[in-house]
Design a protein around this nucleic acid. Structure first.
Lengths: 341, 341
DNA sequence: TTGTACGCGTTATCAA
DNA sequence: TTGATAACGCGTACAA
């Protein structure tokens, strides 16, 4: 009995026409002060709030932005989402947050959900860059789109992290400590972050910085359970690595469990470098060195890029790609290898 | 040019009336098979999807549920949200996720947002149970409402955690290790989890289990920064505690930093017990004992309660309160105190 | 079984 | 400056 107040009620109480009431609500200039006062009085008296559904239907936009990430339970991504939300809320948008769990099938369903809900734009990653069905589905949405940590293309802007540079720094750090047998555990090369880390690793191999042994490279998936499996695998080979590069924001716990299971001591028996900072990396003893970056900056950037694209809707589109730096945070998880092993 | 397909287009292509097309979409029984086929053919050919905005306006519901938690970056809460999302998505609902950051003012604004967006129901905590303005705002929404970890009332169901029991178990564990000077660091008593933990603590004091020293109890706020400050305070008193109960899901990192700053060794110099399990608690060495519970179960319960309430809308409301157990997970963060201190 | 027409709450256009 | 009215896309009574 109180949620059903429409602009019609406001108009009636103020003794004006529906159109006039609407003009007051939308702050149109052409309205007498006395009328404006009466209407505003009625609005506050009734506690009137415009019905967003109706506005949407009329205006063809929902003031809702879709956001799709791997999982909201990964703190790094949650912090990204928060930054996006801050900017977008301030701009009058609401977020439809969804999690693909890196399943292409789920990703496709969620794209359908976004489309049903008529979001005005999207910020997302994809679980597979090569998946044609996914690419088609994305393109067919014909929506302002910003890709998170995936390259831009004809229909989408992108915000990227310089994983290549970060990985290079990490490798050089290990090399400076005489490590030569360095393992890399990361996610699929089908996706930019995995690809870039692998590229850096291979360049380092080509440059003769580290040993060339395919057994040392595991690029399957980015989740913690996989990290456990892959770390165990790489630790189980005949000549195990002296250091491991963990190339995924959600992989440190899994890797750590595997390392613990083998009773290896960090950094004495094994050096490691993680990806993305976390309480875990900071508070472990020894504290874990990581390749880190600024989540908030990333989120703000994505949000602003999207806002710009929405504002310029209709204009010819030239994709923009913004690259953010990563840095190596050296803590205590890497120790030198004796020269004569 | 492809997002503008309405049911009208479908009707035209299928050569039927708008009403008939609608009947097919909504699976009404009274429609000839041949006609149904033709319409469905048109639907898939056009890629038609009903406009949810229009449906909402007609039906008066948005199939959107509001959810308000402290912060999405707290893993415990993120896991809760995920569970809620799983259930609600399956039921055709979408989530409007918001974070109060435990600021009453922000909470009020977000309530306004929910109201503007015409959510069909809400799942939320509140930053202050005694705040009358907040209580009024909640009641005035006149919406199906499930409170998370706050007591039920005349207008809301609730899902609660048995913090009292968990805290008692934790205290008894410490007592069995001869601890007598036990500190409690938790959030405000203005909120159920803080209140229950304090109640357990005071009962233990009354029972003569632990020392009665007000300096050992700090109940300010649940965030990590406050945990740092309060832990430092309690560690700085003349006769510091031999054990600390950390009563908040986001407080362990802050407390730990303070403990580290004072170079105290866990559990040799200080025993601690945390709240809610985490990678941090599991992987630290020594691993941290915690009072834990099942987040997923909690989320599922909230979602189902809300779904029931929505289904029974209009019926007379008798509040339901569901209590979930907590358990003490003993790990390595507590050591016995020598009998003769 | 199918088609027609109305109303949901807005905004915008057009007259007055 | 203001009022009346036509959309927006859909579901559904009511009529055919």
């Amino acid at each position: 009995m109180d949620e059903k107040i429409t602009i019609k009620d406001v108009a009636r109480l103020a003794g004006v026409s529906l159109g006039t009431a609407s003009r007051v609500v939308n702050g149109a200039p052409s309205v007498t002060q006395s009328v404006r006062d009466r209407v505003e009085q009625a609005i506050s008296q009734l506690g009137y709030k415009p019905n967003i559904m109706a506005q949407s239907m009329r205006g063809g936009n929902t003031r809702t932005i879709g956001i799709m990430i791997r999982s909201i339970t990964i703190p790094t991504l949650a912090r990204f989402v928060r930054a996006v939300q801050d900017v977008l809320h301030a701009a009058g948008y609401t977020l439809l947050i969804t999690c693909s769990e890196d399943h292409p099938k789920r990703e496709l369903e969620l794209l359908g959900l976004m489309s049903e809900r008529r979001v005005d734009g999207m910020i997302m990653t994809t679980s597979s860059e090569s998946n044609a069905e996914l690419a088609t589905a994305r393109r067919n949405m014909r929506l302002p789109l910003v890709l998170l940590d995936r390259p831009a293309n004809e229909y989408a802007d992108a915000v990227l992290l310089d994983h290549y540079e970060g990985m290079m720094r990490a490798i050089n750090h290990l090399v400076s400590l005489n490590h030569r047998r360095v393992a890399l555990i990361t996610g699929s090369a089908d996706v930019y972050p995995g690809r870039e880390r692998l590229r850096a690793y291979r360049d380092a191999v080509a440059a003769g910085l580290i040993e060339d042994d395919p057994k040392l490279v595991r690029a399957k998936a980015f989740d913690s359970a996989t990290a456990f499996v892959e770390t165990s695998a790489v630790l189980g080979i005949g000549a195990p690595p002296t250091a491991i590069l963990i190339g995924g924001i959600d992989m440190l716990p899994g890797s750590l469990r595997s390392i613990r299971a083998r009773k290896l001591r960090i950094p004495d028996n094994l050096s490691i470098i993680g990806a993305a900072d976390s309480d875990l990396a900071m508070l472990l003893e020894p504290a874990i060195s990581v390749v880190r970056w600024d989540y908030a900056e990333l989120g703000i950037s994505c949000a602003n890029l999207l806002l710009e694209r929405i504002a310029n809707a209709g204009q010819p589109f030239t994709p923009r790609e913004i690259m953010y730096p990563t840095e190596l945070l050296v803590r205590e998880s890497c120790a030198p290898v004796p020269r004569a092993a």
